[in-house]
């Protein structure tokens, strides 16, 4: 156990140092996730004129929360992994007594910590500009939100890493992610809260993994109605499915791997 903690600590510290090497890049990445803030403006304006079931203030809080969730759930493992496979840089990692995925997990987690101050600064700035949007969520909701965000990151990482393994066969696995991202964009609640979807569509979408990557945690934090049991069960179901698929593809993929370029 202590050796696992030591490995985790050393990896996190090293990748934290790595992330901090490029301060400007980190800030720009944090800013590049501001699509929800733009959408906030659009929806707030629309809410002032129409009947959406959500008030302009709800929209502001929803999209601010979406912004925060996106900061915590950004995943880029597919581009890194694809490069490693194509350039053969996966080879040395395969020869170390540690599954290569832990390098990616560590770099993602370390990046979250490195990004945190920028993100907090942006949120504080936001509330200074719009003090009327400020609210204090209930403690229970806040804790559920934390669990939901961690679950959302885990699921998104797992799904993208599973796609990434296709790099053993196609060498352009990131194309799968580009297609998937389109679905994610529309069905996750990133562009509009699920409340805006027609009821039959919403019922179907709630069985896919997408709304649990953005809408579900956001709704929890701002207090929109959600089905907690269904929510966590769907996350678990998709998580198990992708985990099994991931390990199966990994074993098949390694037999396919030719260690190109190295």
């Amino acid at each position: 156990m202590s050796s696992v903690i030591r490995k985790a600590r050393v990896l996190l510290v090293a990748y934290y140092a790595y992330m901090l090497e490029y301060r400007a890049e980190l800030f720009l990445w944090a800013l590049s996730g501001s699509l929800p803030l733009i959408l906030m403006g659009v929806w707030t304006k629309a809410a002032q004129g129409g009947q959406f079931g959500l008030s302009p203030l709800d929209f502001i809080r929803y999209f601010l929360t979406v912004f925060i969730i996106r900061q915590f759930t950004v995943v880029w493992v597919i581009w890194e992994f694809e490069k490693e496979v194509i350039e053969g840089r996966l080879s040395p990692r395969l020869l170390q007594p540690l599954d290569p995925v832990w390098h990616h997990v560590a770099s993602h987690l370390a990046e979250r910590f490195a990004r945190l101050p920028f993100m907090l600064a942006l949120v504080v700035l936001f509330f200074m500009l719009y003090p009327q949007a400020f609210w204090v969520p209930k403690l229970g909701n806040f804790l559920l939100f934390l669990i939901a965000v961690i679950s959302a990151f885990t699921l998104r990482f797992l799904i993208q890493y599973t796609f990434a393994i296709f790099a053993f066969w196609t060498e352009r696995a990131s194309a799968i992610e580009s297609f998937w991202f389109l679905l994610y964009l529309f069905l996750s609640g990133l562009i509009a809260p699920l409340q805006m979807f027609p009821a039959p569509v919403r019922e179907v979408v709630l069985w896919t993994p997408f709304p649990y990557l953005v809408h579900f945690p956001a709704a929890l934090l701002i207090g929109l109605p959600v089905d907690l049991v269904q929510g966590f069960l769907v996350i678990l179901g998709w998580g198990v499915l992708f985990f099994v698929l991931n390990r199966w593809l990994w074993r098949r993929g390694l037999k396919q791997y030719s260690g190109m370029g190295a």
Partner: peptide
Amino acid sequence: MGQKQQVIWDLPALDSLKIHAAR
């Protein structure tokens, strides 16, 4: 194999060596 394999390019080698030792 080659020179960009074991050590992390942007960090001092000591950081990479720490990872190796823990691993």
